[in-house]
Amino acid sequence: MNSPVVNKPLTALPTSAVALIESATAPKRLPTPAALKARLPLSADLGAQVAAHRRSIRAILNGEDSRLLVVVGPCSIHDPQSALEYAERLANLAAEVSDQMLLVMRAYVEKPRTTVGWKGLAYDPALDGSDDMAQGLELSRELMREMVRLGLPVATELLQPMAAGYFDDVLSWVAIGARTTESQIHREMASGLGVPTGFKNGTDGGIGVACDAIRSAAHAHRHFGMDPHGHPAIIETAGNPDTHIVLRGGHGGPNYDAASVAAVNASLEKNRIAARVMVDCSHANSGKDPLRQPAVFNDVLQQRLAGDRTLIGMMLESHLYEGCQPLSGSLKYGVSVTDACLGWNATEGLLRKAVAALRYR
């Protein structure tokens, strides 16, 4: 039998509990999504460009566009200046390879943490633990908008559902990470995004949770949420048909090889899910060694050239310079502060060589 719930006055609580309650920091208000979008609006021309990029990605997912979808860029963005320099280089390359590839810029401003650590530009733009999230949201949106201005489709991983409303109009592709693919809240969010979305396989390497996520996100939902003006609301979604799986390996090793991809496609068919697969060339697929990403990329490319049209794209973690560095008072320009990345020169060479192979297949 359940015990009755008793509401105790503060005087009846232990001294330590009272001290915790009284010392709690008052919450700091953030701008609403509507207010931030009004301050940093997306022009009609840029909005039309985002819509066109989304249509192009949908066409690739549906087999109507034979180009390869490549999501490429820093593991996370910590320095807007180096991120924009990378974006400018990528925009120039994107124009040159557009007949065979659609390049999408990674603009990851949230980072999942296994325990603790820097959570990304949206959380802590000063990189010092001050956690000025209002500035982080504004800086992140402004940066994404500049990338769109350069002509690039923009991608991010949506980790905190409350943050999605600040960026949803500038995004052309969204990732749901391995740790959150199983989350009902993220599946509901994805069902109402109106943006092509990739669900990563679980950290154990299994694809069951991703299959469940794809089916869930395709359905209409009513769920708790926040409206653009920051009020609690019942959110109604129509369902998102533009979803796919992202293979990133798991605890048991990589899952990008032809046998693994065939097994994934068999599972997708069994679950009546469209067979469209992206391979993340980093994480467990590369053994967390950025210099192994090209080998993974080329293996998947050869599968594609051999006729596997279910492989719709790849993802690369790449920055101006290879490697990574710990957060400190003296950071090297253009080097990741989270996962180690491939450098720009190696990335550009890899993509150019792949385009040549696609052109003359």
Score class of each variant (00 low, 15 high):
E188S: 13
L84P: 04
G151M: 11
G120C: 00
G129C: 04
A190H: 02
D128T: 02
L46F: 14
G202V: 09
N271I: 02
R113T: 07
L40N: 05
A164N: 08
T15F: 10
V154Y: 00
P196E: 13
D204R: 02
R187V: 03
A190N: 05
T347A: 14
A258M: 14
L137Q: 00
H251Q: 14
A275I: 13
N240A: 12
A259K: 15
I245H: 10
G47K: 00
A354H: 13
A12W: 08
G129N: 04
L127N: 04
T114Y: 02
G194A: 09
G206Q: 01
A52P: 03
V170S: 04
D131M: 05
E64L: 08
A238P: 00
V104P: 03
T180Y: 00
R89Q: 11
L90K: 01
A52C: 10
R149L: 05
M105H: 02
V71S: 03
Y108A: 02
T181E: 05
L93K: 06
P41I: 03
P290W: 05
V6L: 13
V72W: 01
K353L: 06
L102Q: 13
R113Q: 07
A190P: 03
T181S: 13
K288D: 05
L36W: 03
E188V: 08
L102H: 12
S172N: 05
A354L: 15
V97M: 09
G73P: 01
R55M: 07
A87M: 00
N2C: 10
E110P: 00
G334Y: 07
V5S: 10
R359S: 09
P4W: 10
T310M: 11
G63H: 11
P31N: 07
E146L: 09
P153I: 09
V300F: 04
V300W: 01
V300E: 07
R359Y: 03
V300M: 08
A210F: 06
E146M: 10
R54T: 15
R248A: 06
G287M: 06
S318P: 04
S328K: 09
R67S: 08
E64Y: 02
S318T: 10
T114N: 03
A35K: 10
Y256W: 15
E146T: 07
Q303D: 13
G329D: 15
R29S: 09
C211F: 07
V97C: 08
Y123S: 03
K288W: 09
A340V: 08
L316R: 01
E157Q: 08
Y166N: 00
Y360G: 03
P196T: 14
T25I: 10
S140R: 00
D168C: 03
H223Q: 03
G117W: 06
R54A: 14
N255R: 04
R304W: 06
V296L: 11
S3A: 12
